[in-house]
């Protein structure tokens, strides 16, 4: 896959929770058409980075540029309206809304004319959701919630899709299904994906490039293949941890 021009550019970002610094000068860039994986131990700051892109919490230093626009200080909802979508950590399905309503929430307001078409696409990707169209989000199983969360993000017709640990707590078969879906989207529609994973092996195999984060800083980066082969990465994230 040829790397297009830079879509998301994160420069020297620092983020705090109160007085505690969670990100300590992060530089990451994602080019158009890529799948980029971010791996790191629990508490490294991966989810914080995903949320910082949306300005919640807000970066205290550094800049975040999306498609040439500085979005560092934009309100969260306006960032979302620039067609960045996220399936966040914990999935955050609206528990008292049906599957359909959850998908409707994903579709941005000016996008309603594509709604039927887009819903069909999501259902082809995740046929399980179609069967549960009127079920409440809170009563879905974990795997179904994950599918719904990704589906909801796709409804926005995103230029960039952020996925925070889509495989967390899921059975290997469902993980494979989800990773296949991501690959499929990237290949057929050229969707750019920025992916956080603890399942480093699967993520790096899927990714064009990868970053390794430790304690709020990026310590290593390279192509997915290189990182997979790197002895340090293997020692820290892969050996004994292969799913």
């Amino acid at each position: 896959m040829t790397a297009g021009k830079s879509l998301l550019d994160i420069r020297g970002v620092e983020t705090y929770y109160g007085n505690i610094r969670a990100l300590n000068g992060v530089d990451v860039s994602v080019n158009e058409g890529e799948i980029v994986a971010l791996i790191g131990a629990n508490g490294a700051g991966k989810s914080t980075l995903m949320m910082t892109i949306f300005g919640t919490p807000r970066a205290r230093r550094g800049t975040i540029t999306f498609a040439g626009t500085d979005i560092t200080d934009l309100p969260t909802h306006e960032i979302a309206r620039m067609r960045i979508a996220q399936s966040p950590e914990g999935r955050r399905i609206f528990p008292r809304m049906t599957v359909m309503e959850n998908l409707q929430m994903g579709a941005s307001l000016d996008n309603l004319k594509f709604f039927d078409e887009d819903v069909e696409k999501v259902f082809t990707l995740f046929p399980r959701l179609k069967e549960r169209i009127a079920q409440r989000g809170g009563t879905l199983s974990g795997g179904e919630q994950q599918m719904l969360s990704i589906g909801r993000a796709l409804m926005a017709r995103p230029k960039l899709l952020l996925l925070d640990e889509p495989s967390l707590g899921l059975a290997p078969l469902i993980v494979k299904q989800i990773f296949d879906a991501i690959r499929e989207l990237n290949r057929t529609q050229g969707l750019t994906v920025f992916l956080v994973e603890q399942n480093a092996f699967g993520a790096l195999k899927l990714a064009t490039r990868g970053y390794v984060m430790v304690n709020g800083v990026v310590t290593m980066s390279g192509t997915g293949k290189d990182l997979l082969a790197d002895p340090e990465v293997r020692a820290a994230y892969l050996e004994g941890g292969r799913h």
Binding site: G18, G90, R91, R92, I93, S141, G143, Q146, L170
Partner: peptide
């Protein structure tokens, strides 16, 4: 308030989804 906020955030991260 800060403690509270943090607690509520983490609980909302964990309470949904039981897969």
């Amino acid at each position: 308030a800060f403690l509270h906020e943090r607690k509520s955030v983490s609980s909302s991260f964990t309470k949904e989804g039981h897969g």
